[in-house]
């Protein structure tokens, strides 16, 4: 597969996440889009589970923020891209946060590395004091 081709956004949706009860509606919205593009059940489940992890992370460490859902295409591939942006304290050591078993909260510490395994693409940008942006892509047949 060529990675030089650019990704084209076909459709997008933005949700604000501020409280725990926003998680389930957000997940349902992601699911709607995944079903619409005909994603297989296993990939859907991986995508939604990953989305759930990231949105919870954003609530817990970033104090909530903005969650964007995009339907994208690249070459002959169709998929879903999720972007999570918060204005929280940021992550001082991304490398450590991406290690299995590392956690600053009371969770099991598989949020980020576990989620990365569920997705096809995973990118995290963070600046202490400014905020964190996590971008993930799951292809329909990935």
């Amino acid at each position: 597969m060529t990675t030089t081709e650019t990704k084209i956004i076909l459709n997008k949706d933005i949700l604000r996440i501020t409280k725990d009860s926003d998680v389930v509606p957000y997940r349902n919205r992601v699911k709607e889009y995944a079903v619409k593009i005909g994603m297989s059940l296993v990939n859907q489940t991986k995508l939604i589970t990953g989305a759930s992890e990231l949105v919870r992370n954003m609530l817990k460490y970033g104090g909530g923020g903005e969650a964007r859902i995009e339907v994208i295409t690249q070459g002959r591939n169709t998929g879903i891209r999720l972007v999570f942006t918060d204005q929280g304290p940021g992550i001082p050591d991304i490398k450590r946060a991406m290690t299995d078993g590392f956690s600053t909260g009371k969770s099991m510490g598989l949020g980020l590395p576990g989620t990365k395994r569920l997705m096809n693409e995973f990118d995290i940008q963070s600046e202490p004091g400014v905020g964190t942006t996590v971008t993930v892509v799951k292809w329909k047949n990935g």
Binding site: V42, E53, D100, G114, R117
Partner: peptide, 14 residues
């Protein structure tokens, strides 16, 4: 447990 859920849990490392 549904197959898709089991596969996802394993991949997640749980």
């Amino acid at each position: 447990m549904q197959p898709a859920v089991a596969i996802t849990l394993v991949e997640l490392g749980l």
